[in-house]
Design a protein around this nucleic acid. Structure first.
Length: 306
DNA sequence: AATAAAATCAACCGCCCGAGC
DNA sequence: CGCTCGGGCGGTTGATTTTAT
């Protein structure tokens, strides 16, 4: 038995909001200085025949003051790409770094325009291009160039269109290639934002700042869930359809990239794969991100709660 | 000008998490 | 400690708009 729905679906209006409904919701929220801590009860109080969640969404994505729509700047493009390359589809976290942007907006923008821009080679994604030695201890990996970033002069970019990543595949070892996979599986619970220096990316804030602000209120999936599918873990991940799938590393066998629970941008890379099956770049790129682009980070102090 | 195809984006869905009891 | 509920999230849908033929 599933949980009860949040509202009576039969008696709530659905679909696009009318200007009158917008005005009612906005007026109520402004008059009462918020929801009073309960979105579910709000529609009734405000006289709206809408689901509370629908009201919340409408407010957050459209009615809220200072919302910007469309017209993403190049700088915003770069920030989105860089953050996506680091954390995947954490749209709320990404949006929190873009004043006036909502997660829905960023998500739509990524899915409809940015992916195409990247594929067309109009956007370069900064990537760390440096060999590292296999770590022998936790200290090594936490201070390794891959995780902490290269010196500025060794940073390079690649584009998906020219597959230049292929050329550098030898210098982009995946974590599983160098034995990091099992390590991450067993130790990622202990990682903190301090171990990641996102500020090495131009225009991207240090992750530790996120840990102090937006990440505190963000949605996190526990390492037990996310780390289970990192790298060459042998555990199974479930895709959206509930089918058991091999976690990352799914390149082999079925000849296609597998989705995982870990927040990989798999749809994007699947797209690359199917677009050009012979593309080593897509594979390398996928593995690159899959292997160390998505290690979950948590504010220090929370790590042991899982 | 008409039609089809593609792109866009608002809105919904279902799941997960934390708070409160 | 377990259950319920609301908030929040990412994924997906589908209506509308734009572009191509």
């Amino acid at each position: 038995m599933g949980r009860a729905p949040c509202c009576d679906k039969a008696n709530v209006k659905r679909g696009p909001w009318s200007p009158e409904e917008d005005a009612t919701l906005k007026s109520y929220l402004e008059t009462h200085r918020g929801t009073g801590g309960n979105w579910i009860a709000l529609p009734q109080k405000a006289g709206l025949k809408r689901c509370g969640k629908s009201c919340r969404l409408r407010w957050l994505n459209y009615l809220r003051p200072d919302i910007k729509h469309g017209g993403f700047t190049e700088e915003e493009d770069n920030i989105i790409c860089a953050l996506y390359s680091q954390m995947g589809s954490r749209w709320s976290v990404i949006a929190s770094q873009l004043p006036g942007r909502t997660d829905n907006d960023v998500k739509n923008y990524w899915n409809t325009k940015l992916k195409r821009k990247i594929l067309a080679g109009k956007i370069n994604i900064p990537i760390r291009n440096k060999s590292i030695d296999a770590p022998t201890s936790i200290a090594n990996i936490l201070t390794s160039p891959v995780l902490n970033g290269p010196k500025a002069e060794s940073e390079s970019t690649f584009t998906f269109s020219d597959y230049s990543l292929t050329q550098s595949s030898g210098t982009l070892p995946t974590l599983s290639d160098i034995g990091y996979g099992p390590f991450i599986n067993s130790t990622c619970q202990n990682l903190s934002p301090d171990h990641f220096q996102f500020s090495n990316f131009p225009g991207v804030m240090d992750m530790s700042e996120l840990g102090a602000t937006s990440m505190n209120s963000s949605h996190f999936v526990s390492p037990s869930q996310e780390c289970s599918s990192i790298s060459d873990s042998s555990s199974l991940a479930m895709d959206n359809k509930g089918l058991p799938l091999p976690s990352n590393g799914g390149l082999e066998g079925a000849g296609m990239l597998m989705d995982s629970e870990f927040g990989l941008p798999s749809d994007f890379f699947n797209g690359l794969w199917f677009q050009d099956e012979a593309s080593e770049a897509a594979i390398n790129c996928y593995q690159y991100f899959a292997d160390f682009g998505y290690v979950d980070v948590k504010p220090q102090g929370l790590a042991n709660h899982y």
